[in-house]
Design a protein around this nucleic acid. Structure first.
Lengths: 355, 355
DNA sequence: GTGAAAGCGCTAACAA
DNA sequence: TTGTTAGCGCTTTCAC
């Protein structure tokens, strides 16, 4: 070996010149030439189709290894007209609920030998439509989507569903007959409200996002139905609609505190909002659960860490993900039947924020 | 219109039979035929190459619209040998730090007209290698990776870097001369330790993950260097290494509390660990910051919401992401120069956990 | 400014 | 079991 300095310099130049797309990649023809067989045989040997003799498989494997052949998935996809890839579009990847949904979906897909192409729509229907178009153009085999908006997302979802198998998760748009998997929102609010009633709550407020998507609508409807059923008062101005964020939770809580008439409980449509509410209460010196009870929805990991820890509704995301992937695979198979609508049962996680 | 029932049934069957890959997609030839031009002209008209007369562009656009043409990105990618897609591999998408890094990278890429293909390696070098191979096979134009392991990830990263432009973010592997962008870990620990010293801290413990990656190593080194420099004692058994998780933070705190010799401060290598430490302290009735000060690293959104809110080091993720994308674009351009190593300065966010 | 034709790298018929 | 051949849908010379 030369002196260290020179040697490293040479190494470096070598690596550098290998970068970029300047160097043509090794193709199946190179492998075929080296293994002295046809490209078809290489393809078969490498893809594991059994109609190749063991010797030849060995030969081909060696040749591929020697050459550092890694295949061209694009060419393969074009020829087979499938990408073994599923696209997923969620409103936000900053929201831990969607994060774990994504992780679960990715996991389920992996076991089915597929990859996930993840997009965030950033809660913007236009961006969402763009993402969906892009996924379709990229020939993903199917799409899993949690649509941003109950009506503004309809066009994109409908169009995509006509192009390829599509499953909606968590939220859904109306008027497009696709599969859907999510949680039973009404049941979730039933659990919360019953729990609060048992704690002696006589009045409650509801903090949620604008009624722009199905989950939000269903949760508000559930809140109204169950509070009425159990005789819990919901005063005027006690339903506050903003967005799914910590910040909105803070603002809404400030509004409630400022109004002077604090209800016995504040029911939040998701954990982020609830965490914001808790924070504002804490800053304002309002004791939780002493003066007011607070509940969330989703059971994100951080809801166990707040002060006080948050009582919330746990969504079975793993089940939701598994079911979504199952439905997608089924749709990828053949003739679709009736669209499935699967509402999975939630469970209540009681923590200190309700005493 | 027929009776509602029948009509809807027919609609439904229609939609159903459109699903799946049964119906052949409309191709550029269909558009060409309808617009009465050649496929070449359609391609040029739609891609916006100016060498097409306005009339023809109109014609083609109309035809494409009428037919619902959406192009085949796979075929295009094969022909152009570029996908306008960048792959990103992170150890976890459940960790909010990576989540916001991903969001920032996606945002920066979008502005550059590229899409992000996101993979999680789940902190598993084997899975990581698999993801990297898969991305290369899919012909992404470049890769942004935060490698799981300082040495176990070297092979995959080195191989990929030889195939295409690659930028490491946050963490890096040794021995592979690629671009890297991250935070200045030593400076971050300097900020923390100086702050603690100013608060009168005389002894400290450090809770981190195993020393399997660069960040972890650099943070521990920084902790040792700055505590020594400022005369803060680090007792035997005061450096606890596990993993980046809330759960490990809880266990480590329990160990520290159980040992009977609680230091003045517990410095954590990330916010998740710190949140776990806070939780255990709270459960054990140990006052923070009364009896012990606690600090984190990353400034994830939830670090402001814990009890007490967490003093931590803010990473400039947006800058990191922007710089990573800039470097990648540069590498995609042409001849790479020396690999860049960009350590961006962190800042200290002081909250109640340090008084 | 537009068309004809040649592939990108791979796989699936079809032959042998 | 293996090779030959014909494209997948698109873009891009190269002519005109």
């Amino acid at each position: 070996m030369r002196s260290l300095g020179v040697s490293r310099a040479i190494d470096y130049i070598h690596v550098a010149s290998t970068e970029g797309s300047a160097v043509p990649r090794v193709t199946i023809r190179d492998v075929a030439a080296r293994a002295q067989v046809s490209t078809a045989t290489v393809s078969r040997a490498l893809s594991g189709a059994r109609r190749v003799s063991p010797d030849v498989v060995q030969q081909v494997r060696r040749a591929a290894e020697d050459l550092g052949y890694s295949g061209n998935g694009i060419a393969s996809a074009l020829r087979r007209s499938r990408t073994d890839t599923v696209g997923m579009v969620v409103p936000s990847i900053a929201n831990p609920f969607f994060t774990s949904l994504v992780e679960s979906v990715e996991h389920a897909l992996q076991q089915a030998g597929r990859q996930l192409f993840l997009c965030s729509s950033r809660s913007d229907p236009d961006l969402e439509a763009q993402r969906v178009r892009s996924l379709v153009a990229r020939q993903v085999d199917g799409i899993v989507i949690s649509p941003v908006h109950g009506t503004d997302s309809t066009e994109a979802v409908g169009w995509a569903a006509a192009e390829l198998p599509l499953v909606q998760v968590d939220r859904y748009v109306r008027g497009v007959p696709t599969d859907w998997v999510g949680v039973d929102d009404d049941a979730g609010l039933g659990l919360v409200v019953e729990h609060l009633a048992a704690r002696g709550v006589r009045s409650a407020a509801f903090v949620s996002s604008q009624l722009t998507n199905s989950s939000t609508e269903l949760r508000l409807a559930g809140f109204r139905r169950h509070t009425e059923r159990l005789g819990i008062a919901v005063g005027r101005g006690s339903v506050l609609l903003g967005e799914y964020s910590i910040d909105w939770g803070r603002k809404a809580a400030a509004a409630l505190l400022g109004s002077g008439r604090l209800p016995d409980a504040v029911v939040c449509a998701d954990d982020l909002i609830a965490l914001g509410v808790l924070q504002t209460c804490s800053e304002a010196g309002v004791a939780v659960p002493g003066e007011v009870l607070v509940t969330g929805f989703d059971d994100i990991p951080f809801s166990a860490l707040s002060a006080p820890p948050l009582t919330t509704v746990r969504q079975p995301q793993e089940l939701i993900a598994a079911e979504a992937v199952r439905l997608l695979q089924q749709a990828l198979g053949r003739v679709p039947g009736e669209p499935a609508r699967v509402a999975l049962p939630p469970s209540l996680v009681v923590r200190a924020s309700t005493g």
